[in-house]
Write a protein that binds this DNA or RNA. Sequence first.
DNA 1: ATAGGATGTCGAAGCGCTTCGACAGCTTTC
DNA 2: GAAAGCTGTCGAAGCGCTTCGACATCCTAT
Lengths: 338, 338
Amino acid sequence: MVTLAEVAQHAGVSASTVSYVLSGKRSISTITRQRVEQSIRELGYHPNAGARALASSRSNIIALMVPLRTDMYVPVMMEIAIAVATTARTHGYDVLLLTGEEGPDAVRRVTGSGLADAMILMDVELDDERLPLLRGTDQPSVLIGLPADTTGLTCVDLDFKATGALCVEHLAMLGHRDIAVIGEAPAVYERHTGFAERTLDGLRSRAQELGVRLLHRPCEGGYDAMAVTLARILDERPGTTGFVVQNESAVEPLLALLRQQGRAVPEDVSVVAVCPDQVAMQASVRLTSVAIPAQEMGRHAVERLVAKLDGRGADEVVLIAPELAVRASTGPAPSGTS
Amino acid sequence: MVTLAEVAQHAGVSASTVSYVLSGKRSISTITRQRVEQSIRELGYHPNAGARALASSRSNIIALMVPLRTDMYVPVMMEIAIAVATTARTHGYDVLLLTGEEGPDAVRRVTGSGLADAMILMDVELDDERLPLLRGTDQPSVLIGLPADTTGLTCVDLDFKATGALCVEHLAMLGHRDIAVIGEAPAVYERHTGFAERTLDGLRSRAQELGVRLLHRPCEGGYDAMAVTLARILDERPGTTGFVVQNESAVEPLLALLRQQGRAVPEDVSVVAVCPDQVAMQASVRLTSVAIPAQEMGRHAVERLVAKLDGRGADEVVLIAPELAVRASTGPAPSGTS
DNA sequence: ATAGGATGTCGAAGCGCTTCGACAGCTTTC
DNA sequence: GAAAGCTGTCGAAGCGCTTCGACATCCTAT
């Protein structure tokens, strides 16, 4: 293993000079810099991470805590994780992957050991037990998702309230007056992961403003659960012509069931989904949808975090504006309804 | 930040004694151990990761390199990643998440800097450019997936050849004589990711042994591509009654298309999938399938790696035996065929 | 009674790096 | 032409831990 000292000797300078070449924290003459860089290349030198962390008390590592649970739509998590890793690298950071399994202990461990300089938490619950720890430490952190109380925290998330509003608006504009919302599994609501509630909030308030009737039903996803849910909805509100779906595993079943019942999309009923673009594009009908901007969320989170690590940037809540892409699953409400 | 020295002082012992309590590398009297442990708890001490890494030249970190590309089925990757992280923790290791983006450079960087003690590589190509580097270093590594030449490497993967054989066997046993294989996207074959070829190999050789006719067609996935592929297959081999699908995004489209054409599953045609159990269970017909044992692969990989780090265990190829779960998508071939 | 072996603890030497203060050799300034 | 300021480089201290050899102590076997 090549060390700094060996590079210094090879280049005929002192160790500190090599260090300054590497960090750029003091000016070095061009000629010396080049000699040092040459030696580094020739010897294939890589600074030792441990020594560096010890001496500088910076590990250049960002911890990313992903949920262990897999009832959330997994590809989104993965996409965020990859965006985080990629963006972190462009800022000189590596990413440590923590699962939610350890819970708050992981926060303590990572903070206490100086393993990471900062943390990103995914899948934050409204009243997450890790939050007090984060507030109590001076280690920067960013949440992906929104807890109930955001004071003293930096959060990044899609603006789900605006998302809900946008979906209703789109359907209302097309003349739909009876809209059903197919939501996440009941467990998601019970767990108080805020996004589902915020979406509903946006849906409801905008629906009221626009004078649209709204019926919300959580759904486990899968064919059987969807069949039951749909039957109940149509029983209760036979005039339903618009659907908003916020549950990836209910999308395809819903389309199949509608087809099976002879209800054409978008001629008879319209469907708007809140889901990753990939799902919207690969469905049997190309779905009008609001995308979950996974990459953007990951990127934003890292950038906020790096800003904090550099002493720039304060606590703030970044809500990404939703964008509705109109595709083939929505159209004017059939005449004669409501 | 609490240090070892402070713990030592608090407990009235020397620093080295505390260190030995922590590592267990020398025997410590019960009374001393307890005093030290008490102090550790009271002070909330966490050993500094950097200092530890520097002094012991072990970082207790395993690097996991995941593919950047997302044309593979993402949930499987995620499940493996989580299994790796979870298993690693039970052995006292943390996991560093690297994306394939940096390619071989990441291997050099991590190896050179001592950031990680070992590596796990996912999505290995047959002739992966990272392999020479791995062979040339003394840092332990495990591949998830099988390259062309495995000498000097440790690999973990599903036995895809046996998987292919198993699928054919099952269909043949049920009396199917004309089987179509719907494979991954052409790009996957072109990239020479071995698993697709190995499955095909198993399918073909067993089909020949059993006197079954086999037709293989790659497929991009999605409805449109599947429609084209299916039409071609039925045109070329109208008597096809069995399907083997190795492409998650083709499964549901295939079922929908068959239904649409009035071919009942499993009465008229049988379908076997090679996919994660979750996909098989959530499909519109519960699919007979061979599961991709993501968790098991992640776990095995870490365990092999830890064995190597402990000086136990040598290079070897671990092929996980496939298991076929019979569900509702396969049945006896309709009489009068072939 | 005493040599020899366990057993438990300590001191000190690094691990490879960053960073601070010092300083030699320049250039600028009046 | 001397004071003052820059620039570029160096030496040394120290980050918090592991680990090796040394050394008491106590036990066991002669």
